[in-house]
Computed example of a mutant assay.
Amino acid sequence: MQTKPFRIGTRGSPLALAQAHETRDRLAAAHGLSPEMFEIVVLSTAGDRITDRALSEIGGKGLFTQELEDQLLAGGLDFAVHSAKDMPTRLPDGLHLSAFLPREDVRDAFIGRAASRLADLPENATVGSSSLRRQALIRRLRPDLSVITYRGLVETRLRKLAEGQVDGTLLAFAGLKRLGRENVPTELLDPEDFPPAPAQGAICIESRLGDRRVADLLAAIDDRRTHEAVACERQFLARLDGSCRTPIAGHAVSDGERLAFSGMILTPDGATVHRIAIEGAASEAERLGAEAGEAIRAKAGPGFFSSWS
């Protein structure tokens, strides 16, 4: 019988806290427990502290997870809540992604100051984004625009936009919805032309392998379709050595029986693009993602990544 609160690790940003509270509330409802049985533990990560440089320059996605994972392995946390797209494809020994909440909208949101639509921005307008995928896709659609690296919390980026530092920016619509800011976007981008990052819109829970007590707790809120879709996308990313240095998009949809996946890789300037699509049994989600990754790597050729990484 659990008498002490379960300790939930999270970053301290407003979005991370919203995701941790959603996880806590779902667990409390699923198990008939008081919310007080879940203690939210806020940790600062290197990715939160270093905001003046691109992630690719300072170590990649692990900068948002290492402190939480260290505490998980040390036993200071029972599990940690993350944005799934922030997770490296390789986790520390002893940890795994044990559950996923139902996925939110996967689309990217454009917030324009000089125009309401990305296509309508004036020539040479400046768009800010911290994502190499978004930067490459912007350059693919609008090679005339100036695209700059632009990091910070959601409110920080919106403030910089309002101050005129950029003419437009892009954010994940899922994050804006979770913050109650779904009215902010001036355009929602079509995933066909502007495909999302692998795992975009999904909240994942990381825990220790072999911790049966926590596994049983989390199983009650694990969304199977999201779990399958993200497992596929992460395998696609892993086969391409996906990191913050590689513009990669991928989106899988599972109906519980079948799974359909589409993926894209781009050069950073958006000039060269390769696409892949695959479908099969949802139960083989990881195999399908790996197969798609190998196929698109072969299509692109051995020099595709090395020529610009």
Rank of each mutant, 00 (worst) to 15 (best):
L91I: 14
I138A: 02
I111R: 13
D86S: 15
R107T: 01
S116Q: 13
S131L: 01
G112H: 10
A125G: 00
I111K: 05
R133C: 10
G94S: 02
V127M: 00
T126Y: 06
I111P: 07
P92R: 07
A119K: 10
L118W: 09
L121Y: 03
D108L: 14
V127N: 00
D86M: 15
S83I: 12
A99R: 03
R90W: 14
P122R: 11
L121R: 05
G128Y: 00
P102S: 04
R113D: 13
L97E: 14
R113E: 13
L132N: 06
P122W: 07
L97D: 13
D86A: 13
S130T: 07
T89I: 15
E104F: 10
L97V: 15
S129V: 12
F110W: 03
L121G: 02
V127D: 01
I138V: 14
R117T: 15
S98F: 13
T126H: 13
A136F: 04
A136I: 04
A115H: 14
H82S: 06
L137W: 12
R90F: 08
F110K: 03
A99M: 15
L118A: 04
L137T: 12
H96S: 15
V127T: 00
H96N: 07
K85C: 06
R113I: 03
L137F: 11
G128A: 00
R134Y: 09
E123H: 12
P102G: 02
D105L: 01
R117W: 05
D105N: 11
F100Q: 15
F110S: 03
D108N: 05
Q135V: 03
R107H: 01
D93G: 13
P88N: 00
P102N: 15
A109I: 08
V127Y: 02
L101D: 05
V106C: 08
A109Y: 06
L91D: 07
R134H: 07
R103T: 11
A84D: 13
P122D: 08
T89A: 11
L132K: 03
E123L: 08
A125R: 01
L132M: 14
R103S: 09
P92Q: 11
T126F: 06
R103G: 10
P88F: 02
A115S: 12
T89C: 06
T89V: 10
D93R: 14
L97P: 15
R103I: 15
E123Y: 13
S83F: 14
L101I: 09
L95Y: 12
